[in-house]
């Protein structure tokens, strides 16, 4: 439903250039985009400006590009905007670029969902064994026992931020491992 109306707004804006339409499309995402910008800039005023600058680049780009998945496209655009801006300021702050790059790749893989078979479960189990201990513990607690980060941290005694990155990296490694073994 949301995606359908987004698709409608995208097409209508591309044809007419009416900013009202683009505003309706962008507004729901502004809080998220602001949060994302703050993550990179760590500055409220700059992040607010960036939210508007990103809107301006939408104004131009969406007249030309045909976008099928607005949310992931917007994510990439917004993140690149912040990173490029920081790079031109040559004030490279503590942004772990590699981690973020992998995160955006994930969106591409998200498109297809394969059915879960016995074979895949066994494959996953064998891949889980290959993860390092921290990642394995966190992944099991999070995905299999459905504990929140806080609980995982409490059970394992790891720092909350560590838990988060163990899960993110563990999930990534798991995916890579499974793709490798399937081939």
């Amino acid at each position: 439903m949301v995606e359908q109306s987004e698709q409608y707004l995208l097409t209508a804006y591309r044809e007419t250039g009416n900013l009202q339409l683009l505003g309706r499309l962008y507004e729901p995402y502004m809080p998220l985009v602001y949060g994302l910008c703050f993550k990179y800039y760590k500055d409220e005023a700059k992040s607010e400006d960036a939210v508007m600058q990103i809107f301006e680049s939408l104004v131009a780009k969406l007249r030309v590009h045909e976008v099928s998945n607005f949310k992931s496209w917007l994510y990439t655009l917004a993140r690149n905007h912040c990173l490029m801006d920081l790079r031109t300021e040559s004030r490279v702050s503590t942004v772990d670029i590699e981690e973020h790059l992998v995160e955006s790749d994930r969106l591409l893989h998200q498109q297809y969902e394969e059915p879960i078979t016995e074979e895949r479960l066994a494959l996953m189990e064998s891949c889980l064994e290959e993860l390092n201990e921290e990642q394995q513990r966190c992944i099991r607690l999070f995905y299999l026992e459905q504990k929140c980060y806080k609980d995982v941290a409490a059970i394992t005694g790891y720092d909350l931020n560590k838990v988060k990155s163990y899960i993110q990296n563990g999930k990534r490694n798991l995916k890579i491992c499974m793709e490798r073994k399937q081939e």
Binding site: Y29, P31, L32, V33, Y34, G35, L36, C37, F38, K39, Y40, S47, K71, S72, L74, Y75, A78, R79, H100, E103, S104, R106, L107, Q110, F142, Q146, K147, C148, Y149, K150, D151, I167, Q168, K171
Partner: peptide, 24 residues
Amino acid sequence: REEMYELEREALDDPLLQDAIDGY
């Protein structure tokens, strides 16, 4: 706890959400 888990799970599949949460 369940709601926290749910949001964390969503964020793992949604980098925009994840970055927004990190930012806030």
